[in-house]
């Protein structure tokens, strides 16, 4: 902590459990989304795991990663960045800040082919509508069936303009329904109870009983089964396929810690890191191995078909897909 500033900072300094480090310990700065700063996410375990290997200090700087990188440009302090999504990679690549990873990605177990030379996936998941089987006796068997359900069934979704999962939904529907997307939204609209700014608000509305279904992920039920022993939450699996999402890690080209950054990428692909993804991040690890998933997780129903939009395609479709959504929802 700095010597200046307020009593608040001093108190915070006392409370912070930062261990004292020798002055010459190298520091690896990794920009990450806010959930890496959370005690209930994978951040702390990753930090401990990597620091045990690297004789360094791994520091997560959490917040809005892309905005910060763009504001800082060449002057960024980051050595690596974790948690970018495929809807950000086009913009991230365009900054020219990132270096090629040089890793062998043949061990990845994603449901899609991944050969990007810059961004390394560390988890993946698929969007899905989650329901409570005690409240929704007859869940839809397909996306088409969802559209045909009674308008009394109420669904909460997220706004594609402020939420990653909300954006995933408009792209998912554009992939499933093609030219019929606008009509599909028109059929879905009366069932949409409301649109929330982020995932948390929507999921809160669902668990509090306000909505019958919520836009979330195929892996969401695993949390309820493992952490709450609650088997009533189920993801509806659609034969039309589910939209693939992955989170990525990449190395900054101008880093002053190239070896550490490189070692961090190796660590991300290691059994240790990949093994904690399931129950810390409630998603699938990018490199699944024997024992990487708890039994409950492994037995979750998985879609037969995965829908994946490569970066350029997702970027091109984003604006028209949001425009279609806006048009129908504002009618």
């Amino acid at each position: 902590m700095k010597k200046t500033l307020s009593p608040a900072l001093m108190i915070a300094g006392c409370l912070a459990s930062s261990n004292v480090l020798a002055a010459d310990t190298p520091e690896l700065i990794v920009y990450a989304p806010d959930y890496f700063g959370s005690e209930w996410g994978p951040g702390p375990a990753i930090e401990a795991g990597f620091e045990a290997l690297c004789a360094c200090d791994l520091k997560f700087v959490t917040g809005d990663v892309m905005s910060r990188l763009k504001l800082e440009g060449e002057g960024t302090e980051a050595d690596a960045v974790i948690g970018l999504t495929t809807d950000q990679t086009a913009a991230a690549r365009a900054t020219g800040l990132f270096a090629a990873h040089g890793k062998d990605l043949s061990g990845l177990t994603l449901p899609v082919a991944w050969d990007d030379d810059t961004f390394v996936p560390f988890n993946w998941g698929e969007t899905a509508f989650v329901y409570d089987k005690t409240r929704l006796a007859e869940p839809p068997a397909s996306f088409a069936a969802l559209l045909d359900m009674s308008d009394d069934v109420k669904i909460v979704i997220q706004d594609p303009r402020s939420s990653v999962s909300g954006l995933a939904l408009v792209l998912w529907m554009s992939e499933v329904f093609g030219d019929g997307t606008e009509e599909a939204w028109r059929k879905l609209k009366p069932k949409i109870l409301t649109v929330t700014p982020g995932w948390s608000e929507a999921y809160g509305l669902f668990t509090s009983g306000e909505a019958d279904m919520v836009l979330s992920f195929t892996t969401s039920p695993a949390y309820h089964i493992i952490a709450e022993e609650d088997e009533t939450k189920v993801a509806a699996i659609f034969p039309e396929g589910h939209y693939f999402m992955t989170e990525l890690v990449a190395k900054i080209g101008a880093t002053d810690q190239p070896d550490l950054a490189d070692a961090f990428l190796d660590y991300v692909l290691s059994d240790d890191f990949q093994g904690m993804i399931a129950t810390a991040n409630w998603s699938y690890p990018a490199r699944e191995f024997e024992g990487a998933l708890p039994a409950v997780f492994a037995s979750l129903p998985r879609p037969d078909k995965t829908l994946f939009l490569p970066e350029a395609e997702a970027e091109a479709r984003r604006e028209p897909a949001i425009a279609t959504w806006l048009k129908v929802m504002s009618e």
Binding site: T194, V195, P197, S330
Partner: peptide, 13 residues
């Protein structure tokens, strides 16, 4: 206001 309007507003209107 941002979150209130969006969450209770019911949609992009």
């Amino acid at each position: 206001s941002f979150a209130v309007a969006l969450t209770l507003g019911g949609g992009p209107k």
